[in-house]
């Protein structure tokens, strides 16, 4: 499975990369929002994992970009420090499939990825 990660914190990005590639996924990781949107449109990954606070374009914009792609059902996991209800709600309204708050556990992330993928 091809997974695109949009996350500006190097450390978080790297650890997710390590964990998910151990799980056998192909990873494309980016630190910037606009580049992520472009890559999503051209590469059509199976899943996108995105932060909300991203430089260039916000994670919410990424979620709505993904959900506007009709040719493929791409899953989206939002990963954010912001755990307030209204933000979570907004993300789901835009079509996010999962919302994980930071600090997060890599094991949990991996399980959620697996679950989502099995639904495809």
């Amino acid at each position: 499975m091809k997974i695109l990660i949009a996350e500006d914190d190097n450390l978080v990005r790297k650890t997710i990369e390590i964990k998910l590639s151990k799980d056998g996924h192909e990873i494309i990781s980016l630190a910037e929002g606009k580049a992520a949107i472009e890559n999503i449109n051209t590469m059509l990954p199976d899943m996108v994992i995105t932060d909300i606070m991203l430089p260039g374009a916000s994670g919410l914009e990424i979620v709505s970009t993904v959900k506007n792609i009709t040719s493929k059902d791409i899953k989206v996991i939002v990963l954010s420090t912001m755990g307030q209800e209204n933000i979570v709600e907004e993300a789901f309204k835009l079509g996010a499939d999962e919302y994980i708050t930071k600090p997060f556990s890599l094991t949990e992330l991996s399980i959620r990825v697996k679950k989502l993928m099995s639904r495809v």
């Binding site: 914190d9 450390l11 978080v12 650890t15 930071k102 600090p103 556990s105 890599l106 094991t107 949990e108």
Partner: peptide
Amino acid sequence: TKKNLIGIA
């Protein structure tokens, strides 16, 4: 690292 990750990490 600690700020972002919980669990085993």
